[in-house]
Amino acid sequence: MSTLIEWPVKSRELQSNHFDSTIWNDFQFRSDDIVIATYAKSGTTWTQQIVGQLLFSGDPDLTIAEMSPWLDLRVPPKAIKLPQVEAQKHRRFLKTHLPVDALVYSPKAKYIYIGRDGRDVLWSLYNHYSNGNQAMYAALNDTPGLVGSPFTPLPADIRKCWHDWMDKDGYPFWSFWENIRSWWTIRELPNLLLLHFNDLKRDMPGEMRRIARFLDIPINEDRWPFIMEYCSFDWMKNNATRSVPLGGAFWDEGAKVFINKGVNGRWMDTLTASDSAQYEARAVKELGLECAHWLAGKS
């Protein structure tokens, strides 16, 4: 006797200096769509690269940022972005940073959610935005449809940035805990695969094959060495203009800044033992022990 699946239902909109979740209301799903979801800076671009290379059997010329847009980003507006996505002929693989209840979750699509320790996330966010140039801030703030406050540069002191992010749950970005919690809650759905950044670091070939199985992508073994090469951190950093939005125009030092170090633990020299203990206790309180353990990359 089959069990009736209770699919998530969209219950709210998230609109801000970054988000316009209303684009999902008008998005027409295809039966083979792929949605890659994270809070942010958790291996999103890496996973997009992996999916793209699996789909195209190892092609060094793929322009992943153009092929796999961040659908709910306000830039460009949905009136421009939606027709571009609908015109795509290849199997679509899109990116979102929304919690589950702010997007349309389709039984037709397959979803991949990637988690990463919040301390590593914030350090990567700090690098990403502190290196952003005026063009990035202008795009976020001057594009029509801004809801809420304009986005302003981060504090120079990363410890202040950390405490703001923790004390105000994701400030000045968006809620960290609700994002993780919303995807963890639906982890048993048959069309959702949970990945962890640490597992990709530990065993990229194994995780890539797991992704391929989940997405029903046959692997051309003759091309496997090339697929692997084009998904390596060094190759991606050296060819970052292909996988970074607008070829890196939002960073004065170019696309390589977007794909920064790909390492964990940079916070260890800055956060105190007390800071880390508070974070770990907060993770358990917000997420429960099992999810907090998974998010820490310990399983």
Rank of each mutant, 00 (worst) to 15 (best):
S274Q: 13
E6D: 14
N264C: 13
D275R: 04
E188D: 14
M136D: 05
P144C: 12
G118S: 08
L71W: 03
E221R: 11
S68H: 12
W235F: 14
F56A: 07
N239F: 01
L200I: 15
R91P: 07
N133E: 10
L82W: 12
W235A: 02
T45H: 02
A65E: 09
A40L: 07
Q278L: 06
L146Y: 05
P8F: 07
N17P: 00
T241R: 15
L295G: 00
E6T: 15
A135M: 13
P144F: 08
F93M: 08
D269Q: 15
K256G: 05
Q28V: 15
G132E: 07
I158H: 02
Q88S: 10
M204D: 00
R12V: 06
I80S: 06
P153R: 15
M268Y: 04
R119T: 05
K108Y: 02
Q134F: 01
W70G: 01
D59N: 15
S31P: 05
H293V: 02
E207D: 01
T44H: 07
F29A: 00
L192Y: 04
F214A: 05
I36R: 11
R181T: 06
N220T: 11
N17D: 07
H293S: 08
P76H: 01
S182H: 08
S21N: 04
G148F: 11
I64Q: 08
W174P: 02
L295K: 10
K95E: 03
I23Y: 08
C291I: 04
N133P: 10
Q28S: 08
L98R: 00
I64L: 11
P150H: 02
K78H: 12
L103Y: 13
R91F: 09
C291K: 03
I50K: 01
K201H: 11
P69K: 00
D269C: 06
S31Q: 14
Q28T: 15
P172G: 03
L71V: 13
T44S: 06
E280D: 12
S276V: 15
R187D: 01
S42Q: 03
T185P: 01
P69N: 01
G43E: 10
V75S: 09
